[in-house]
């Protein structure tokens, strides 16, 4: 039992107005972070402004890329067929947060604004080039996600501003993505590290014909072995790492080094090494720094492989209509 007043605005405008007029006020969405902090007496707001009853914050718009309302729950994302296929990393992460009970109420906006170094959805949004849509009394603005995280629990929001949604570009049908959460148990745990990848691949000579060799093997690494001397190259790759720095970060040197190269296991190993050199993990209760760095090496390659699998594997294909 706590001492706060609880407000339930119906529109974004009303919420911003309340935030401006109330003393010591805080936004609350799913409440799975805010209520915990209040119970632990780490937060003592006099007023909570609930974003749960604002219908304009709840939308999944799949025309022309992907637009998501900040009030969309993790369950809604994890269960969305389009997001699972085309923005797989995000669905991976949303489905890996907490438990069913948490995912059913916890929102995307909340996960991002809480900005834990371990926030599962942050890495996918980084590799998927998301923009954050922000509204406040000064009006609307958009911020690239890479500029949004400032540090642990610190984001680029001015007083009274709130995140209303996310805009993700259309990444094309030769793109796949994945997020790997490395934790001790599958539910209700924070990641020791989290790695997201997005890979776009192309074949030299742009003839797009169906190749049976692509879909014959179950294991994508076997496919890669067969293709090593062929002209299958990385067009563009994004890598993001969680829990290895005060905020979720991109491995930009690794991304640069992989661009345009022929896909091979050796290359993936090198990329893992570069990504690990860009990480600055620390010792914590969940894992020691050296271990985290080792796991960055392993999981970076794995996340990229899984991304490729989603382009060429028949099971989870990004675009089933397009086989080479």
């Amino acid at each position: 039992m706590s001492n706060y007043e609880y407000h339930k605005p119906q529109t974004v405008k009303e919420a911003i107005g309340l935030m401006e007029s109330l003393e010591n006020a805080k936004y609350i969405a799913g409440g799975t972070d805010v209520i915990v902090l209040v119970k632990q007496e780490k937060l003592a707001p006099a007023n909570l402004v609930s974003l749960r009853n604002i219908s304009e914050l709840v939308y999944i718009d799949t025309k022309d890329g992907l637009k998501l309302g900040a009030g969309v729950t993790h369950s809604a994302i994890a269960n969305n067929e389009f997001i699972r296929k085309r923005y797989s990393a995000l669905a991976d992460a949303a489905g890996a947060v907490g438990s069913k009970q948490i995912r059913n109420v916890a929102t995307m906006g909340g996960n991002i604004c809480n900005a834990a170094p371990s926030a599962d959805t942050a890495c996918p949004l980084l590799v998927l080039d998301a923009k954050i849509v922000i509204d406040g009394k000064a009006g609307k603005r958009e911020v690239p996600i890479d500029d949004f995280f400032l540090g642990p629990n610190k984001v680029a929001l001015n007083a009274g501003e709130l995140v209303t949604g996310f805009v993700l570009p259309d990444l094309g049908s030769n793109t796949g993505s994945a997020y790997i959460k490395h934790a001790r148990r599958q539910a209700m745990d924070l990641p020791i590290i989290g790695i997201a990848a997005r890979a776009a691949i192309k074949i030299d000579g742009n003839e797009a014909v169906c190749r049976d060799s692509f879909v014959a093997g179950n294991d994508i690494s076997q496919t890669i072995k067969r293709l090593e001397d062929e002209r299958l190259v990385f067009e563009d790759v994004r890598i993001a790492m969680g829990v290895v720095a005060p905020r979720p970060v991109r491995a930009k040197k690794a991304e640069e080094a992989i661009k345009g190269k022929i896909i091979s296991e050796k290359l993936l190993k090198e990329i893992g090494e570069i990504a690990a050199s860009e990480s600055q993990p620390r010792d914590s209760i969940r894992g020691e720094a050296w271990y985290r760095r080792e796991m960055v090496k392993v999981l970076t390659g794995r996340a990229i492989l899984r991304s490729i699998g989603r382009i060429v594997g028949p099971e989870q294909m990004t675009n089933p209509n397009r086989l080479w």
């Binding site: 609350i28 409440g31 209520i35 609930s50 749960r52 009970q101 059913n104 109420v105």
Partner: peptide
Amino acid sequence: AVSSCLYPVLE
């Protein structure tokens, strides 16, 4: 399914 311990009563 939700955790009622985190569910603000007014919701």
